[in-house]
Design a protein around this nucleic acid. Structure first.
Lengths: 231, 231
DNA sequence: CAAGATAATATGTGCAGACATAATAACCAT
DNA sequence: ATGGTTATTATGTCTGCACATATTATCTTG
């Protein structure tokens, strides 16, 4: 007989009470010690279950005030940002990429500003077209701060994609990510084999290491792309 | 003197070793018992720290095999899906909404299919324009399964938005969410005061309660909208 | 009655120990 | 060598306990 009261079971049972309406949004639920008695387990087990539900945005907890069901339950979605290679290969297609640009040049002002680079300062510009089988999949347009990643200048992005190279050569860091929609420019359209003006799903990512921008990347997906996740 | 070895401190120190390059991507890190000895704390504390880092996608753990630094570190982004009212008000603007449509009708085939409704079966159609101050902010197009939420038929969506009503009246549930880009249709453009064909950022959400679809909502944001988060 | 001090309390976190489980490594028989 | 069995081991999780911390509730005092 397996253990009856894992924290997973507690999570399920609590979720069930919420979904059944027994504990409606806003309701205060019993305290940890009471639940521990009721379910016949340690308080630590209850704590872990409730903590994870709180992390998921389903519960809200405050010391002394207790735990209540969130009024705005569907609040957090966790997106996986896969390597493009993986994403393509998981769809069953073959991933290839073509290096379109790889040279030092002066980034557009808005990108320089976002990266905190002085105007007119050159950076490494790498543009890569990713393909699923023989169809364009997405266009990766990347600027790399040469001060932070000087080794990148001599890397061979034709064999290993810039993204994969960075992941393997630059330590983990913080940053911001944005999702937006843009009309395809003439150049985008040509490269992605799309109609000019087509709505493209765009992901922009700025990566920093200790305050300093390492790389700014804009990935524009082919028309029709959907980024999905469960909630 | 405060406690020196909280699980937060462990997380920081581990992260630091990763970011400093001491533990590069792919590296196997010491086992929990060793780290516990080194940091002078209980294994449970190490476990919690490493577990949370693994949840964040920074570490990968497998029984017996040990813990290693992820090869693909920036993998998960947690998006907050705020209530539109909150989102607008946090930007400093005043939120208003206008009920454009609220009646039973037959949903388009692709939506009926996604909701698992029989063809030609009517559902409650609610279309709401959300505004920040006096500018259009986003267009919410929602279909509600009357079998699951019959009370919705008599709700007054003019005062409380459909989203807020549902959150407060339907128990928490599972579902899927998708992010995509679409060219504005003539109708979209007119309502959102955008150019026809403008690229719109669209969020589609399907909410289920025990397998059965409750509601399908498509939210099309005004041109220029960016959904952002840290990573 | 109001403002500030004090007590009460629910969650937050740490520890030591135990057993469970998955996956590798070692071993053995063929 | 090879395939299957067994031992080993790192993480996964639970328990029971203790103390920390943030709030709320209460009590005191002017």
């Amino acid at each position: 007989m397996s253990r009856l009261t894992s924290y997973r079971d507690i999570k399920k049972m609590v979720l069930d009470r919420i979904q059944s309406g027994a504990w409606p949004p806003g309701a205060l639920i019993p305290r940890e010690t009471e639940l521990a008695t009721e379910f016949g387990c340690a308080r630590a087990t209850i704590n872990r279950a409730l903590r994870e539900l709180a992390q998921a945005g389903i519960l809200e907890r405050r010391r002394k005030a207790g735990t209540r069901v969130s009024m705005t339950p569907v609040r957090k979605a966790t997106l996986d940002i896969p390597l493009i290679r993986q994403e393509v290969e998981e769809s069953g297609a073959t991933h290839r990429h073509r290096l379109l640009i790889c040279k030092m040049s002066v980034p557009p002002a808005h990108i320089a500003a976002r990266m905190g680079l002085p105007l007119e300062r050159t950076a490494l510009h790498v543009q890569t077209l990713h393909m699923a089988d023989s169809a364009p999949y997405c266009l990766e347009d990347r600027w790399i701060n040469p001060r932070v990643a000087p080794e990148a200048l001599s890397a061979d992005f034709a064999t290993l994609s810039a993204n994969e190279w960075l992941v393997q050569n630059i330590p983990i860091s913080a940053g911001e990510i944005a999702f937006l929609a843009e009309n395809a420019s003439a150049a985008d359209a040509e490269i992605l084999n799309a109609a000019p003006g087509a709505a493209l799903f765009v992901v922009e990512r700025l990566t920093r290491i200790a305050q300093e921008a390492v790389t700014h990347v804009r990935i524009a997906y082919r028309p029709g792309y959907r980024m999905t996740t469960g909630i």
